[in-house]
């Protein structure tokens, strides 16, 4: 049986959409993303100290926490998403501490029950895989790792070891929400990574427009967009779903245009 990731990426370049759980009407926003053509959902687990994030996602984390969002609420959002959208791959993305607080086995078990396909733990380096990797793999959940412009060829095998689902190439050395890297560098780095693995490679950080997404989709298996959605959630509050849907439609069309007919 193939996984949701395999089925999705087999269709060609995929649009991966990130929003923070507990910021705005998350369930409605997730539905809008899927309705607009999102292929994979990354649901951010809010954390008090989002060290790798820029101002937009930092603020989303704080808004979510100030509203009282708990780990149980994130898992509930995931469970309900899975019930409404049985086919769409769902990734929980966040920082290590909330994931390991009750022990890795607890988290893996709950994520599995919620129907989560993959987990990204931003500050869990491959060197510290023991803290989460074995528990997730045991439950058949993919640990999705990040590669960056500073990840050289020597290091890529260590990053790939124990990872599955897809690889997330962070195209800029920096935090989320800042400018995009040059296309030439993205293409070179994706090529370089793909020479080491058959896993799909999705590219993110700084992608906001359909034009950027279309360019990246020509050279990668996925395009990740986050801060642009977060900005809409902040700006439009309860009216965010219609705006999200409009943006996703444009992005999805751009990404899917790179699919072979």
């Amino acid at each position: 049986m193939s996984t949701r990731f395999e089925t999705t990426f087999a269709k060609g370049p995929a649009l991966v959409c990130f929003i923070t759980a507990g910021d705005g009407d998350t369930a409605a926003n997730l539905d809008a993303l899927v309705a607009g053509g999102a292929d994979v959902i990354e649901l951010g687990m809010p954390f008090t100290d989002p060290m790798a994030d820029g101002p937009a996602i930092q603020a989303a984390n704080i808004r979510a926490l100030n509203k009282g969002t708990k780990t149980a609420d994130v898992l509930k959002l995931a469970t309900e998403f899975r019930a409404r959208h049985p086919q769409v791959p769902l990734v929980l993305m966040g920082y290590a501490n909330p994931m390991i607080r009750r022990g890795p086995e607890w988290f893996a078990e709950e994520a599995s029950k919620a129907g989560v396909d993959g987990v990204i733990s931003v500050d869990l380096a491959p060197e510290e895989d023991q803290d989460l990797g074995p528990a997730l793999r045991d439950k058949g959940i993919s640990l999705i790792r990040l590669a960056t412009p500073t990840t050289d060829d020597k290091r890529i095998p260590a990053v790939l070891k124990g990872s599955s689902g897809f690889l997330y190439y962070v195209s800029v050395a920096g935090i989320t929400g800042k400018q995009q890297a040059a296309m030439a560098s993205i293409e070179d780095n994706v090529q370089r990574i793909k020479s080491h693995t058959d896993l799909p490679v999705a590219v993110g950080f700084g992608v906001r427009t359909p034009e950027q997404a279309a360019e990246i989709a020509k050279v990668a298996d996925g395009v990740v967009v986050g801060s642009a959605f977060i900005d809409l959630v902040e700006k439009h509050g309860p009216d965010a779903p219609q705006h999200l849907k409009a943006l996703v439609e444009g992005l999805a069309k751009a990404v899917h245009s790179a699919r072979k007919a």
Partner: peptide
Amino acid sequence: GRYVAETLMPL
């Protein structure tokens, strides 16, 4: 240990 974002790991 070393719990940092991948960008920092090589450094």
